[in-house]
Design a binder for these strands. Structure first.
Lengths: 210, 210
DNA sequence: AAAAAATTCACCCATTTATGTGATTTTTAA
DNA sequence: TTAAAAATCACATAAATGGGTGAATTTTTT
């Protein structure tokens, strides 16, 4: 038996969802609410397996509701429900620990299937959403595997540079003369093809050397 | 009619897949191969809609095959096929533009459904994989929204600093005197609570000001 | 065993940066 | 309509940085 809470501001849709789900074998709607103003308390007392969370709600929207719940509870499966599959909301929802993201146009049978999937640790997503998720993934630049052949000591120096250390401080930290620090830094600049501290730092961040 | 290429080293599974898919209404297998050594050429000449790509293949594995194809073709849908849903491969595949990731234990009917989904721009994923993808998403640290109240001009200066510009270059770029650049930078340092260029650059990267 | 790379240190010097202390004009906010 | 913030410029100066050249020792690779 999968126990649910439903958050949806539209009364008709709220009732419709409740009837549909509660009337289905193996599903039980513990409660349905028109906003998230009490979401933390409700989740705490009802202890649902799955939450259906509409995104576009007044006062406290679904994303905020999601965040509120996740501050206290990382167990319950939260399925975001929305009319729009816009990039920004998808990203924010998934960043904040939503377990799935489905569109309201999903047919009833499919919806029940999705809830089941969410309850068993899955991550149900409407096809268009899944596709956008993958696109976002591909956009994350993968750390380049080249570490520019920096030697151990050179990497250490670069890391301290990134932390904002001056040559003097680096020398103290590494127990070497300041001229040795210079010497290492010169090598680092050569290898990174830069000629200033800030460029080196920027490159270190961009290429995830640090 | 969805046209496919199949890459799978296991002869039995390769034949099985080919028979199953080619024998189904609306699907046509253009070719099936035991490795990716000629994948670029094959994709170029067969022009498939979907590629089924086994990950665990000898010589050139599926991830490498994926990369090879994507170097020349970003259109074709590539569905990764594997026995294991291990984190590392999922991440690498999705980073390199795979359109879906499904396990070999997927039942035939579901497999055809997945292929259809891939062909129509979807992103079919086995539940366990989707769930892992979301977990990875949640791990990506979200950019802090604080921009430290930098003014427009101050942001511009900082951006140029990040690009490795010297004060002189910044002055030229922004059509202002070098002393004005100094004065902006002083303000920036105050607001970021730093006192060197490289620290500012590092902070800009960390806090996604740039 | 020989060659290459890494690590260490030194000296010089021009340029850049960081910081202080002003001031004027424009724009924005109270 | 004032006051505050932003944007502009100037002068001065100590400290830090970048680049050049050179060299001795140790470690790694071939």
């Amino acid at each position: 038996m999968i126990k649910l809470l439903i958050y949806e501001d539209n009364p008709l849709l709220r009732e419709g969802l409740t009837m549909l789900i509660d009337g289905s074998e193996g599903f039980q709607v513990l409660g349905s609410f028109k906003n998230c103003s009490n979401v933390v308390h409700e989740v705490g007392s009802f202890k649902p397996d799955v939450i259906l969370m509409d995104i576009d709600m007044p006062v406290v929207n679904g994303i905020e509701g999601l965040k509120l719940v996740r501050q206290h509870n990382t167990e319950v499966s939260i399925l975001m429900l929305t009319v729009f599959d816009d990039n920004k909301n998808i990203f924010e929802a998934l960043q904040n620990g939503a377990n799935g993201y489905i569109l309201k146009k999903t047919p009833p049978a499919k919806l029940l299937e999705y809830i089941q999937e969410a309850a068993t640790g899955g991550a149900p997503m409407t096809a268009s959403v899944a596709s956008q998720v993958l696109k976002m993934f591909a956009q994350i630049n993968i750390p380049s595997d080249n570490d520019y052949n920096l030697s151990e000591r050179e990497k250490q120096v670069l890391q301290l540079l990134v932390k904002g250390y001056s040559y003097k401080l680096i020398a103290a930290e590494m127990f070497i003369a300041i001229d040795t620090v210079r010497s290492h830094i010169k090598k680092v600049y050569e290898k990174l093809h830069v000629n200033s501290k800030s460029e080196a730092v920027a490159k270190a961040f961009k290429d995830r050397i640090v």
